[in-house]
Design a binder for these strands. Sequence first.
DNA 1: GTCGAAATTTAGCCACAGCTATATTTCGTG
DNA 2: CACGAAATATAGCTGTGGCTAAATTTCGAC
Lengths: 151, 151
Amino acid sequence: MPPDAPPTCDPQTDLAADAQPDRFQRAREAQAVALLEDYVEMIGDLIAEHGEARVADIAQRMGVAHPTATKAVSRLKREGLAVSRPYRGVFLTEDGAALADRVRQRHRVVVDLLVAVGVPRETAELDAEGIEHHVSDATLHAFEGFLDAKG
Amino acid sequence: MPPDAPPTCDPQTDLAADAQPDRFQRAREAQAVALLEDYVEMIGDLIAEHGEARVADIAQRMGVAHPTATKAVSRLKREGLAVSRPYRGVFLTEDGAALADRVRQRHRVVVDLLVAVGVPRETAELDAEGIEHHVSDATLHAFEGFLDAKG
DNA sequence: GTCGAAATTTAGCCACAGCTATATTTCGTG
DNA sequence: CACGAAATATAGCTGTGGCTAAATTTCGAC
């Protein structure tokens, strides 16, 4: 096929198709940070409860084996989100703590919005765990506006 | 620490913590099928437009290299969602086509709901790409109910 | 103060999902 | 109808994120 004569007849369709790759790349990037966000939030919770986050507790709450949690912590340390000395508890850096706060807050807003539009609370909690990582700042702001207007 | 005397003082906190692993495992599973869903929907779109889905087109629209698309098609075939003969176009099985329809419909509902609560259309399209894969049937139903009630 | 249990880390495996480079096949053009 | 360009497939690499099994360290109990 010659490059100046694409096989599709509708130029509008082609335009939409051209915009798609960016969308999917964006979604892939969001997914890449999603796990780190979950671990950071979980570590934040554990520190708030116990004063430190032990690998065994992280693993248990994330539903993974101990070595998996250890590797995740390594990635967090590499990203500058957590610190730890060998065989000791894990702590968050300033950046990590800030991220944990943001994630926790976003989670709450997402759950509240889901409930506000009629999703049962329990279902909202379950779905929010996956949804929250794909909620942009703009969407989060819209959610907050909607909740303010409603209540 | 003895097993009958956990270090936390609040039994309610422990209960919530015990429920967490399932949540995360659920989110991980959802993420595992998300990519397949995207590919299936995209292949459905291409078939609707061109009568078949070529690997090069799939790769271009998904924003990945050709071999990545080829490997994805292999997984779809293994899962019984697509069929293809070597060096020829890709087609969906009955299951694949049904999944594509469901995904497309769910995407539309998610975008509509985001718009309904005040998210700009363009942002809604971007975020929906990631959000939709984590919307359960129960939540989708609630979204539809909310949209019906609204307009 | 030593020893053993518990926690952590390390090593090594698998599958996925991306990539580049190379081989193979198809198909339009001359 | 042969040939070369384009499309597809294969091979082999990287990094992620799981896992089990084995080595190491910590720490409480005696």
